[in-house]
Amino acid sequence: MGKNLKIFTDGLLKNNPTFVLVLGMCPTLATTTSAFNGMGMGVATLFVLVMSNVVISLLKNVIPDKVRIPAYIVVISSFVTVVQLLMQAYVQDLYNTLGVFIPLIVVNCIILGRAEAFASKNGIWASALDGLGIGLGFTLSLTVVGMVRELLGNGQLFGLDIWQGGGALIFILSPGAFFVLGYLMIVFRKLTAKKN
């Protein structure tokens, strides 16, 4: 159990996909215009990550080694399409806001990376936990980036006014995404460095 717990927590901090591995930068920058959007994107990715990890770990002995990458891509893109359809049916506003970035979960290097590096070598249970850990780490990072941008750019958190009169719009625009992520990464490094 201790080992499994470690797999899970590693994904959150030590292997945090955004701040440490620097993977999946496109959705991190593009969809974090508000805390809610960032979280929505994170959860969608989490779902795809866990499901594809499970399925790929299940199929790891069936898939021929030479065509494993195309096979992974097929599995991942199927789950992405499923997420896309489910979101369209039940959370249509979020679906419209995230737009083209939902299908783009397919090319999020985190997912293919975990499939190749972890799920293809480990059991179902461990793969699911790995997906959950990394996915939650990703969701958390996206939510934090979204919160900072929403607060500085709009004076709101999750759509609630924190102060009146908005903020510096630049943080909502794409330059702000680069700035916030860059500075947060410095802060994250500083914090984790101290722990060690």
């Binding site: 898939i63 021929p64 065509v67 097929v74 599995v75 199927s78």
Partner: peptide, 16 residues
Amino acid sequence: MVLMLFVIAFVCSAAV
């Protein structure tokens, strides 16, 4: 090998 890939692709498309 190719057959396996086809099977996976087919099952996935059917699921979608």
